[in-house]
């Protein structure tokens, strides 16, 4: 069952997906836009996080611009080896997330490290441990990332 949000929650999620102001008393400023009190907005954000309706509230960082490196990668894992390979891949701290997907390339994961060299080393380790070739899908260009899914 999906979580139910009331109209105020929905307005908060939609307004704050786009941006939280970097000003003095920012909750008060954001609350005013929403017709809420500072206290109520803080309590609502807390509740959205506690109920799991939101996974995070805060700055979202751009890893490459911090000097780090990110890469999307994929493996075509034989079904009978899937769990074993998932365990090998997930054991690497550099693997930030990993999803099973509907394709011959059925395991898609994002590597995050402090350098491209470290990302590549991790990919080679995964290839050695699993005996499978990793599909490297680094980002060449990014065409606008908006988090604009209205809830």
């Amino acid at each position: 069952m999906p979580l139910k949000l009331d109209d105020t929650d929905r307005a908060i999620v939609n307004a704050l997906q786009g941006g939280f102001p970097l000003v003095e008393r920012p909750y008060a400023a954001a609350a005013e836009e929403l017709g809420l009190s500072e206290e109520e907005l803080i309590a609502r954000i807390n509740s959205l996080l506690e109920r799991g309706a939101a996974t995070r509230f805060g700055p979202l960082f751009h890893a490459e611009r911090m000097g780090g490196a990110l890469m999307l990668a994929a493996l075509a894992v034989p079904e009978e080896r899937f769990d074993e390979v998932a365990e090998l891949v997930n054991a690497h701290a550099e693997v930030a997330h990993n999803y099973k997907r509907t394709h011959r390339y059925n395991m898609w994961f994002v590597l995050a490290a402090e350098s491209q060299e470290r990302v590549e080393e991790t990919v080679r380790e995964i290839e050695r441990e699993t005996g499978l070739a990793v599909l490297r899908a680094p980002k060449l260009k990014e065409y606008f990332i908006g988090f604009k899914v209205p809830v």
């Binding site: 999906p2 979580l3 949000l5 908060i12 999620v13 704050l16 997906q17 786009g18 941006g19 939280f20 970097l22 000003v23 003095e24 954000i45 959205l48 109920r51 799991g52 309706a53 939101a54 996974t55 995070r56 509230f57 805060g58 700055p59 979202l60 960082f61 751009h62 611009r65 911090m66 990332i145 988090f147 899914v149 809830v151």
Partner: peptide, 28 residues
Amino acid sequence: LERLRAMSERGVIRRVGLVPNHYKLGWT
């Protein structure tokens, strides 16, 4: 505050905000 603003301007911070859990909200 100044440094957060500067990191936002340089794109080190993409944005500051709430990340909805699409899955829990029924976007499965």
